[in-house]
Computed example of a mutant assay.
Amino acid sequence: MKNPLKTYTSPWEGRLILACQKCQKKLKGNDDLHALAKLAKTVKRYNKLHPTKTLEIVNVPCMDLCPKNGVAVCDPCNPLRLSILRSAEDIERLER
């Protein structure tokens, strides 16, 4: 019999969100969308303000959605739907 898969505890707490790295890179030069270009830092600030609803961002390669002035994100709990963040306020909508 083969050995079972080895498992580890995850290094994060809270809800995991996959974010398109290419979308974030395209927003770097836009000062109005700086919060989305640095999504991991923005989420860390969000987590400090909302410690009971923590999120964890994992950057992934392109999701082939490529929204204009936005970042494509995916919630692994609902992998059939991609969401588009167009402002830092949209991060709160991910909790729903």
Rank of each mutant, 00 (worst) to 15 (best):
V73L: 06
K22Y: 06
D75S: 01
L18K: 01
V43L: 01
A37M: 07
R93P: 00
I57H: 02
R45Y: 09
P76D: 12
N59D: 09
M1N: 05
I17C: 02
K26Q: 11
C62W: 04
K38H: 14
P76M: 03
K6Y: 01
C74R: 14
G14Y: 09
K53L: 13
K38Y: 11
E13L: 02
A37C: 07
D64T: 07
Y46S: 00
L18T: 02
S83T: 02
V60G: 02
H34K: 15
E95M: 14
S10V: 14
T7P: 00
K28Y: 10
K28I: 13
P61M: 07
P67N: 06
K68Y: 09
K38S: 06
A88D: 15
V60S: 02
Q24W: 10
A40D: 14
K28P: 01
V73H: 04
H50K: 12
N69Q: 13
T54P: 15
C74W: 05
T42S: 13
Q21K: 02
I57V: 15
A40Q: 13
N47M: 07
H50A: 05
C23L: 08
A37V: 02
Q21L: 10
C74V: 14
L36V: 03
L33N: 08
V43S: 00
V60K: 00
K26G: 01
Q21V: 09
L80H: 06
L82R: 02
C23G: 03
T7C: 05
D64E: 12
K26C: 03
P61D: 13
K44V: 12
I84D: 09
D32F: 12
C20R: 00
N78D: 14
N69A: 09
V43A: 00
R45P: 00
T7E: 04
L5D: 12
D64A: 05
C62T: 08
R93E: 13
H34W: 09
I91F: 11
R15Y: 10
R96C: 03
K2L: 09
P51W: 04
R15N: 10
G14M: 06
Y46I: 02
L49A: 15
D31K: 02
R93L: 14
I17Q: 02
I91W: 10
L49P: 03
K2S: 13
M1Q: 04
Y8E: 03
R81K: 11
L18S: 00
Y46V: 03
D90Q: 04
L5C: 08
Q21C: 05
C66G: 02
N69P: 04
A72T: 15
T9L: 12
N3V: 10
V58S: 04
A19W: 11
Y46E: 01
E95C: 13
P4W: 01
R86H: 14
Y8F: 14
K6L: 04
V60D: 09
R45S: 14
R96E: 14
L16N: 01
K22W: 12
L36S: 05
G14Q: 05
D75P: 00
A35Y: 10
L33D: 11
P61S: 13
V73N: 03
L80G: 03
C62F: 07
A19N: 03
N47Q: 07
V71M: 10
